[in-house]
């Protein structure tokens, strides 16, 4: 009975079920494949964008005088701009463009993969046994997301600091 239980817990599915690293597992430095890092960055950039959006909704509410305002208020808007239109604010906006563009392009890759558009046809495994589904187009799209995000951030930085 004990032998049977031990054998059962060594099944791949059982081992996966015991994997309780959760969110902490995202940042494991031993996760060296690019798809794993793309997954981690998708989650981290998503959280960063959500935090920015919530702050942005609060910030733009000062166009109507803030939480207790009643309509468009130029003095309140000028006060808001004085707090956000500075080097730090522009740096934040540049970083926002960086993470938004990465999240968007990598998100398109994920949607295309989810619907099977960019998966290769299944084939007999061959040495060195790399999964065919994660080759060529998928990997290229990760780099398109990275490069696209950097270029967009440089362009927006040029506008904001130019």
């Amino acid at each position: 009975m004990g032998q049977q239980a031990k054998a059962a817990t060594n099944e791949p599915g059982e081992r996966a079920a015991r994997n309780k690293r959760g969110v902490a597992g995202w940042l494991n430095p031993l996760n060296t494949n690019i798809e794993r890092w793309a997954y981690v960055f998708q989650r981290v950039t998503g959280l960063a964008v959500l935090a920015y959006v919530i702050g942005h909704i609060g910030d733009t509410s000062f166009f109507v005088g803030g939480p207790f305002g009643a309509g468009p208020n130029s003095a309140s808007w000028a006060l808001d701009l004085s707090a956000t239109e500075n080097v730090f604010g522009h740096l934040v906006l540049t970083m926002v463009v960086l993470v938004v563009v990465y999240h968007g392009i990598n998100g398109v890759r994920l949607i295309l993969a989810e619907y099977g558009v960019i998966f290769q046809k299944p084939a007999r495994p061959e040495y060195p046994y790399k999964p065919k589904s994660l080759r060529t187009v998928q990997k290229h799209l990760v780099w398109v997301a990275v490069v696209g995000a950097i270029l967009a951030a440089l362009y927006s930085g040029g506008i904001l600091f130019g």
């Binding site: 919530i54 109507v64 305002g69 309509g71 208020n73």
Partner: peptide, 18 residues
């Protein structure tokens, strides 16, 4: 959050400018 953002859009579009 949607309600708060919608309030801004509605007040900006219809509120009295000051």
């Amino acid at each position: 959050t949607m309600a708060y953002g919608t309030r801004t859009v509605i007040l900006a579009a219809t509120g009295q400018v000051s």
